[in-house]
């Protein structure tokens, strides 16, 4: 193990991790947005949009992110639609993540008993108010474990961004292996970098999940 080498290239990894996290956060943000919209469209069974949402979910869930990215980054420019690497990364991650987030929101919404809606209506709340004060707060907190799991999943998925010529963690590791044959060092730093990124989220998620499962509201 060449410690000097490791220390020398730590900044490179930090920079790459920053890129991963940055793209991940933006992608997750849009995923949540898409997911919530899609789940509400399906919950309210809005005609036409409901069909589109259904097709989107099937397309998104049944194709690999890597293939989606190849199409976006290498395919679409030939049809005159050109996005930067960063834009492709964010579009791809959001396209993939949206359907996963929708599923998490959907299971939260479906877990709310019908009688909650009815009793809210029966004290005179309007449908919008029922959603805002009664259904959504409960559904969202039930969705949290699923949403957290999806966030971890999406950050892991960013590992393919190197194909977009983005200098993310995988890209840096592969570069160091290719240039200096420092395979052990490069891989060790790679693993540590992902652990540093993902462990805190994973621990926080399982803490949240346990709290929600065993305590519920009122503790």
């Amino acid at each position: 193990m060449d410690t000097e080498f490791i220390i020398k290239y730590i900044p490179l990894y930090v920079k790459a991790a920053g890129l991963t996290i940055g793209l991940g956060i933006v992608g997750i943000f849009f995923s949540l947005l898409i997911g919530l919209s899609v789940s509400l469209i399906q919950y309210f069974k809005i005609p036409v949009l409901k069909r589109i949402a259904g097709i989107y979910i099937e397309l998104s869930r049944n194709t690999p992110l890597l293939v989606q990215l190849f199409f976006l980054y290498f395919g679409l420019p030939k049809a005159g639609i050109r996005f930067s690497s960063q834009a492709c990364a964010i579009i791809g991650l959001s396209f993939l993540g949206g359907s996963y987030m929708a599923e998490a929101f959907r299971s939260g919404l479906n877990a709310i008993d019908k009688v909650q809606e009815e009793s809210a209506l029966s004290i005179g709340l309007k449908h919008g108010q029922v959603m805002r004060y009664v259904i959504l707060p409960q559904a969202l907190s039930l969705s949290v474990p699923g949403l957290c799991a999806n966030m971890i999943f999406l950050i892991k998925e960013t590992s393919v961004f190197s194909v977009l010529a983005l200098a993310d963690l995988m890209y840096v590791a592969k570069d160091l292996i290719g240039l200096y044959y420092k395979t052990d060092e490069a891989l060790l730093m790679l693993v540590i970098a992902y652990l540093v990124l993902l462990l805190p989220i994973s621990v926080a998620a399982s803490f949240l999940e346990r709290r929600l499962r065993y305590a519920g509201f009122g503790n």
């Binding site: 971890i152 892991k156 995988m170 395979t183 891989l187 693993v191």
Partner: peptide, 23 residues
């Protein structure tokens, strides 16, 4: 279980493909 889950599969691939070969 946790170590398989927390690492991106691509990292695992790199570890085996490049790591085992080299080490």
């Amino acid at each position: 279980l946790e170590s398989m889950r927390i690492m991106p599969q691509l990292v695992l691939l790199f570890l085996v493909y490049f790591g085992l070969t080299k080490s």
